[in-house]
């Protein structure tokens, strides 16, 4: 009982003796060191979509109405299934490895 009382007393004293530290310009100093703010997310998304559409239109006209795409699709259809599967699996593995290494690097930063 006495032991429990002492523990409670100790915890209470520890909490009470933790003074509130006034900011005194600390937050301003941190914010000043932040990298410059990027454009808002929605603004960035609009720019990206706009540029993608513009690039698609230019590519369409420069490639004779996207004829190269039809040719490539025919060529792909003529390839053996084994080769297409092999390329797809390799691509997936490379993308997974790149994603995993990026995630690991991110975790290491916070450790």
């Amino acid at each position: 009982m006495d032991e429990q009382f002492q523990e409670d007393w100790l915890d209470r004293r520890l909490r009470e003796e933790m003074p509130y530290i006034d900011d005194e310009g600390f937050t301003a100093a941190v914010v000043q060191k932040l990298p410059a703010a990027q454009a808002p997310g929605s603004y960035r998304a609009a720019i990206l979509i706009g540029l993608t559409l513009l690039a698609s239109v230019i590519a369409y006209f420069l490639s004779d109405g996207g004829r190269f795409f039809v040719v490539a699709a025919y060529r792909l259809a003529g390839m053996p299934l084994f080769f297409i599967s092999f390329v797809a699996i390799c691509g997936t593995l490379i993308a997974t490895a790149a994603g995993a290494s990026a995630a690991l690097a991110q975790t290491r930063d916070t450790r």
Binding site: M18, Y20, D22, D23, F26, T27
Partner: peptide
Amino acid sequence: LVDDDHHAFAELVRNHQSAVRGLLR
């Protein structure tokens, strides 16, 4: 995260600065 809002981050710093600085002290 969404808007890279420095004001929001400043608010987070203000809310937690005392506890973090106290712990480090």
